[in-house]
Design a protein around this nucleic acid. Structure first.
Length: 463
RNA sequence: GGCGACGUAGCCAAGUGGUAAGGCAGAGGUCUGCAAAACCUUUAGCAUGGGUUCGAUUCCCAUCGUCGCCUCCA
């Protein structure tokens, strides 16, 4: 079987071939840390976590680098508003984001470079582009000369001539061409800055990714990822920079995730329609967010609302239903059938994931497998056969980064009392005092505790 | 205005040139004291209009609609 990846560069699915056999270098654009991260940022991190986990499952050694943009206009602005150093702002939100990554069960990247830590390399990169004629200094700034790079527009499908720069904003008169973009910005008074051959200043947004990618992964990489809002201009400019610097193709595969939508529009700070990761996790388990993403294509927009969250939680519950233990029954004679279906489940799962990480399809196969397992249990499967299938389910779901163990919703204190109530209800039921036993069940339900009577007794779980 | 993506059942969402996975919700049933859970059965002709084809939901064109980008953005 062969993995296929949808490449934004060609707008097609292409067979996955790495630069080096068995190894994958992957660079994913991380957030600009000027404010609290929202679930859209989490989506991007989750999507590429799934990609990374799957590639590793398929035997690749993945070097995964994701950056933090820790110097830019918005960070500086925020710092001025709060009257603190811009590095303090950046550090605050980096720390927060790190914690989010842990909470969301996202595997740590191999490296988390920051722009401010790579300043000498960035300056070197800008100087290199100036030397090669791809950039020109102008009054303390340095601009990339877009017309000098023949491939400009190949990622986003644009032509320089077609683009009416200035259509929405005024063109900076210092640029030779309206599409030229800043590699280096001269510092205004009071702004954080670094010395450079062009005076004190700071890097433009795009150059840091080219430089950090090079510093961490080399001149060429296998996969470059990010949100599809970055295709233009950010990734287009990265290509222009990196390929001008090294004279070879930058990334083989460009992968872009779709945008998280809230109230019919892309979730964003400027529109104000966002849900922070913090507020999501206050109300929901982390796995629910991952489940939302798994249920659809990573490339499509994803609607975020109460309904889709609930849907994801029900889907999780459904997966978990397969993990219940065997029933005390006889007459089980289909162990071979269960094993056979386990093999098929895994094959289908892999085939779906090989096809551009088609998680929605893969989930479909896992739900089929859930049904298979539940059927086997109902038919009286023994614990050993069942456990084997369940282990496979956990394994496959683990490839997607899902943990099906039920999170501790509340402290253990309540549990003893719930057990006590169940014990009392058991007496009622033995006495056939149905009204009383139902009262206990209903009242507990109101307190978000669901009871289920089974042949082995009554079990309960948080709703 | 330019570029790009998308439009599949009540909802979410895969997929295919030869008559459509899965999940949720709904209906009926098994089980249960009753429920719940699980299991069984059941619910679509794929935006619209053309074209290519023996045959299209799947390919091409147009139209309409939604979204993204063209300014910072995951």
């Amino acid at each position: 079987m062969e993995i296929k990846i949808y490449n934004t560069l060609s707008r097609k699915k292409e067979p996955f071939k790495t630069l080096e056999p068995g190894k994958v270098s992957m660079y994913v654009c991380g957030p600009t840390v000027y404010d609290k991260a929202h679930v859209g940022h989490a989506m991007s991190a989750l999507v590429f976590d799934i990609v990374r986990r799957y590639l590793e499952y398929r035997g690749f050694e993945v070097k995964h680098v994701t950056n933090y943009t820790d110097v830019d206009d918005k960070i500086i602005q925020r710092a001025m508003v709060e009257g603190v150093d811009s590095m303090e702002i950046a550090q605050r939100y980096i720390d927060e984001f790190d914690q989010h990554l842990k909470d969301l069960n996202i595997l740590p990247a191999s490296e988390y470079p920051r722009a401010t830590e790579k300043m000498p390399q960035i300056i070197e990169g800008v100087a290199d582009l100036v030397d090669k004629g791809f950039a020109y200094p102008k009054e303390g700034d340095v601009y990339y000369r877009v017309n000098k790079f023949p491939g400009y527009g190949k990622l986003s499908g644009r032509k320089i001539d077609d683009m009416e720069a200035g259509f929405r904003i005024d063109v900076d008169q210092r640029k030779e061409h309206p599409m030229d973009f800043a590699l280096w910005k001269g510092a205004k008074p009071g702004e954080p800055s670094w010395p450079s051959p062009w005076g004190n200043g700071r890097p433009g947004w795009h150059i840091e990714c080219s430089v950090m990618s090079h510093a961490c992964l080399g001149e060429q990489i296998d996969i470059h990822g990010g949100g599809n809002d970055l295709i233009f201009p950010h990734h287009e400019n990265e290509i222009a920079q990196s390929e001008a610097m090294f004279g070879k193709q930058f990334a083989t595969y460009w992968m872009h995730n779709g945008m998280m939508q809230l109230s019919g529009a892309k979730m964003s700070k400027s529109v104000g329609n966002l849900v922070t990761i913090d507020s999501f996790l206050e109300k929901h388990e982390a796995a629910a967010l991952r489940m939302m993403i798994l249920n659809s294509s990573y490339r499509s927009p994803l609607t975020f609302n109460e309904e889709t969250i609930e849907h994801a939680q029900k889907a999780l519950k459904r997966l978990r239903s397969a993990l219940r233990p065997a029933l005390p029954k006889d007459g089980w004679g289909s162990a071979a059938k269960l094993e056979d279906q386990s093999v098929k489940a895994k094959e289908s799962f892999l085939a779906a994931m090989d096809d551009d990480f088609n998680t929605a399809n893969a989930m479909g196969h896992l739900f089929d497998f859930v049904k298979t397992i539940n059927q086997a249990r109902d038919e009286g499967a023994d614990q050993e056969s069942l456990a084997k299938a369940q282990a496979l389910l956990n394994e496959l779901v683990g490839v997607l980064g899902l943990d099906l163990s039920v999170p501790e919703v509340q402290g253990g204190e309540a549990e003893a009392f719930i057990d006590l109530l169940i014990e009392i209800r058991k007496k009622f039921r033995e006495e056939k005092l149905w009204e009383l036993s139902d009262l206990v069940r209903d009242k507990l339900e109101e307190l978000n505790v669901s009871l289920e009577d089974t042949a082995q007794g009554t079990t309960w779980h948080w709703k």
